[in-house]
Design a protein around this nucleic acid. Structure first.
Lengths: 195, 195
DNA sequence: TTATGGTGACTGAATGTTCATTCATTGTGT
DNA sequence: ACACAATGAATGAACATTCAGTCACCATAA
């Protein structure tokens, strides 16, 4: 059980992304994922404990590596404001370039047992930490306001990005979301008030 | 089928909220909902087309009436800024006062077939329209910036509120979210920049 | 007043389907 | 000839939905 390496492990995860994106969570039977991965039904269980484990692993693998990439990119930059722009840009880019993954993470994987949800939550914490760090840095630099809880600010940033991507996915990705990076950045930093 | 009135119709919807909140979507069998509503399994099908129809109706009834309330409250106010504060306040209040409903709408109902999702989307449009109206009014009044698409601003407002409530639900509602109204309002209006 | 019949709401056991999971068997490389 | 990977048909559990039967109530007539 649960060998975490090998071509088949990756093949099954990629097949799962494809099948779930195309048919929806409720019609993503194990047998369908197996066929897409060119593997027998039983083989799935040599690599994953059960069906939930496929979904948890999928999220950890795909999002985990995205978070790593983000972390490294941000380290190249100095100012909190620039880091924030880069974060928005990377988030929009990644999901633009992976439509299937966007559908799965924004829509299909939101349905799940407490188990899966819990595991997703654990993985997400790393991302929240990255955002919190940017905000804290901005406050220290004196360019971000210091009268609000960091978590409130983080929720605005994450909630807005998340909602924007979900809307983009729902609209069948008809517009270029990456080009909206600066609008969102400016909205965060300058707020709603006319000036 | 689908009598939309009567005690039992409401009883079944309320039972569904309770059962889904307590046991999660995947363990909310029709028979469990029936038992909670003090009704036989078969009776459900006198009032609802099928299980999905329960969920769709649940969302329409509960959220629909919330949107109405919101709409009326906002009409009592003049300035866009005040309307925005009231919107945040109402949204936080409603879901604070209905823990079960909050769990169901924020978490459990996000899992669902395209069908349910579509119907939820239709219902949500009314709410998005309410937010869009506030934003448009603010721009006309000259107090909100006019260089961004109204929908981008709406996504910030809705996304932030939604994320905040989800986080509150996930943390087992350990803090008073209503008291955060002004923080969020100030964050929207004044943005992130130190001043 | 009491029997009769009709109506429609309600019941819940039985049905049938849909999969996730298992495991006896087969294949492959060394 | 051994070890290990892979197979896929068979299993059984879960559960939405159905429907033949019961019940409660009312109107009418004797």
């Amino acid at each position: 059980m649960a060998r975490k390496t090998g071509d088949k492990y990756q093949a099954i995860i990629d097949a799962a992304v494809k099948v779930i994106a195309r048919h929806g969570y409720h019609h993503a039977q194990v047998s369908k994922i197996a066929r897409e991965a060119n593997v027998a039904d039983g083989t799935i269980y040599l690599y994953f404990k059960n069906k939930d484990d496929i979904l948890i692993s999928l999220f950890k693998e795909k999002m985990g590596s995205f978070f790593e990439t983000t972390h490294h990119h941000l380290n190249e930059l100095d100012r909190a404001e620039d880091k924030l722009r880069e974060l928005i840009h990377l988030h929009f880019s990644l999901l633009s370039e992976n439509r299937d993954l966007a559908i799965v993470t924004q829509i299909e994987l939101r349905q799940s047992d407490p188990d899966i949800r819990y595991q997703i939550g654990v993985t997400m914490k790393r991302y929240f930490q990255i955002i919190d760090d940017i905000v804290s840095q901005g406050i220290e630099e004196g360019v971000f306001r210091d009268d609000l809880d960091v978590r409130i600010i983080r929720r605005m940033i994450f909630g807005t990005i998340d909602e924007a991507i979900t809307a983009w996915v729902m609209k069948d990705q008809k517009y270029d979301i990456v080009s909206l990076t600066d609008s969102f950045h400016s909205l965060f930093v300058n707020g709603l008030r006319a000036r």
